[in-house]
Design a protein around this nucleic acid. Structure first.
Lengths: 107, 107
DNA sequence: TAATATATCACACTATATGTTATAGTTCAA
DNA sequence: TTGAACTATAACATATAGTGTGATATATTA
């Protein structure tokens, strides 16, 4: 039903558009559509402390500024980069988005 | 130093570009630049349970799919929408991004 | 001198994960 | 039409660890 998903690549997104069109004209059923969607969803892996620091420096911002973007405390970013604490769940998704599209994607 | 920030509006972003250019040619110093940046950073407010549900329905996805996008558990989305639990920090930022740019922004 | 960035620590909180059960709607085949 | 299988959602309990707050200290920078 035109559900928006998250894909492993733009290629997957393109394929999904085709699948979606096929579904809308009745060529494929809902169940097939659902299982297809699930297969296309991306799985998130962890990120290493140094990778976080590199990412932040790539974006050329300080820890406080970086923290404000992600809506977390400044100390947390410091802890992440030193491996004291590890980002998970929503924070991991945010970092992934920044990796792919930059901090501007959060604006 | 061309730092990338998060702005309250596109107008702010435009103004920042100008400020950035002025800084690069030495018209303004680093300190002024920093304080300007801080003033432009957006403050995140909470989001009501119904707003989360509306947002998800606007994106036309189920709770499990929505959860996968945000990289949270399926039950958590249910709890958010019923007001049992409230998203904060990184999760709030993610929801804000989806509100402004849609789920595709997380792809 | 003053402001900023970063590191570091202690403490408390709650957001989140995980697992389970139940109900209802949908799909598909017998 | 019936029923089995799958999906979505709600609901609850438990445990974890991610996160926030506040403070201090050092080094850098305006």
């Amino acid at each position: 039903m035109g559900e928006k998903k998250q894909y492993k690549s733009e290629a997957f997104a393109a394929v999904h558009e085709t699948m979606d069109a096929l579904h809308q004209i009745g060529a494929i059923d809902k169940k097939t559509m659902r299982s297809f969607d699930k297969a296309c969803l991306e799985t998130l892996t962890g990120i290493k402390p140094e990778a976080i620091r590199k990412l932040r420096k790539r974006e050329n911002v300080s820890q406080p500024i970086f923290a404000t973007y992600l809506n977390v405390s400044r100390n947390l970013v410091s802890d992440w980069e030193r491996g004291v604490k590890k980002p998970g769940g929503p924070a991991l998704r945010l970092l992934s988005v920044v990796q792919k599209h930059g901090l501007d994607a959060l604006a």
